[in-house]
């Protein structure tokens, strides 16, 4: 196989979303203690979204809400317990094999050390994927050197170095290079810049912006830092306890949040103005446990607008504007919530 055949060709045309996820679920069986009762963690519970070609979808939400699990489902690292993944008009498990999916989707994680083999030089690490996929050694090496150049690590100086001989920012560049060596169309960045120092993070964000343009990439960008997400994303998806509560154009969501949880996340951002510090905490309490999540709207235990209805009935997703959906009874005129705009 030659390098140019490695990536997957376009099938559905420019208007076909690169990824459609429909009603994805991922339930993990767990036991409370060795003899405890069997329970289920609803890590991802009925999640639907799509990512257009060339777009960056930002994913936010508190720890444990299912961001990484969603990502792992998309790349086939964790099998879904329900739902469909449609990659460029081909359904996973039907027209599309898991093996082909993995050629099209790559992932970069937060821990820059964990995903690099300490015994391989960084050139070997980047060349590894193509080699395993049948590219001959000389060609794989050329790919690796080109990529090193592209990610700002001069191959003459860096090709022979081992992971421990690099800084965190440089290692994260290598991980990005390693992902790109597979010619993916979708790259999932799971807190990929979160462990970096602020000054180094900005360099890597610039690199990601350049690579997206030069390699026609589509990104799913998971981060807890709303400033970073705003900077990089076209659209934003907000998750809470395994569900999507709001999704919409990033700028629109920054201007006005339709879901009370999204609003709370935004108001938890530090003010950056010493004369106008935050006075009221955005929410009380921690996120509840995804084993036995609250009934109805899962946010009702922390929501300042919750009514009886919210504890008994799950809100449906309503469309507010172009590509903007929210799951909250207050935004659904037919729900019967006291604050629902008719």
């Amino acid at each position: 196989m030659s390098a140019s055949e490695m990536g997957l060709p376009d099938k559905g045309g420019p208007r076909q979303p690169l990824v459609i996820a429909r009603d994805l679920t991922c339930h993990f069986p767990v036991r409370a203690g060795a003899f405890g009762p069997k329970k289920v963690v609803r890590a991802v519970d009925g999640v639907s979204f799509s990512i257009a070609k060339g777009e960056t979808l930002g994913v936010v939400g508190e720890s444990g809400c299912g961001k990484s699990t969603t990502a792992r489902l998309l790349i086939g690292l964790t099998p879904a317990t329900g739902g469909k993944i449609i990659y460029d008009a081909q359904e996973l498990g039907e027209e599309l094999s898991l093996r082909d999916l993995r050629r099209g989707v790559q992932m970069v994680f937060q821990d820059s050390f964990a995903s690099l083999n300490p015994r391989l030089t960084i050139e070997e690490s980047i060349a590894f994927g193509p080699k395993v996929n049948g590219v001959d050694a000389a060609e794989a090496r050329r790919i690796a050197r080109d990529l090193l150049e592209r990610i700002g690590l001069d191959p003459a100086r860096f090709a022979g170095r081992y992971p421990h001989e690099l800084s965190g920012g440089q290692r994260q560049r290598v991980n990005i290079g390693r992902a790109l060596a597979m010619r993916p169309r979708l790259v999932i960045l799971d807190e990929a810049v979160s462990a970096l120092d602020k000054s180094v993070e900005a360099q890597v964000l610039n690199l990601l912006t350049d690579l997206r343009r030069d390699f026609d990439l589509t990104y799913m960008f998971i981060s807890h830092d709303l400033n970073v997400v705003r900077y990089i994303s076209d659209r934003l998806m907000v998750m809470y306890l395994g569900e999507v509560v709001e999704v919409g154009p990033a700028e629109a969501l920054y201007e006005r949040q339709a879901h009370p949880y999204t609003a709370a996340l935004f108001s938890a951002m530090p003010s950056m103005d010493p004369y106008a510090r935050t006075q009221v905490p955005p929410l009380a309490g921690d996120p509840p446990n995804p084993i036995d999540p609250p009934s109805g709207c899962r946010f009702h235990t922390r929501c300042p607008f919750a009514e009886d209805l919210c504890a008994s009935k799950k809100p449906r997703a309503v469309t507010l504007g172009e590509g903007h959906q929210v799951a909250c009874h207050m935004r659904d005129p037919a729900s019967g919530h006291g604050k629902a705009a008719a």
Binding site: S167, N227, R230, I232
Partner: peptide
């Protein structure tokens, strides 16, 4: 580098090096 108020798509003024 805090990106507070950074303009989407504009190049960030990153400090080079480490």
């Amino acid at each position: 580098a805090n990106l507070h108020g950074a303009v989407k798509g504009a190049r960030l003024d990153a400090i080079p090096g480490a």
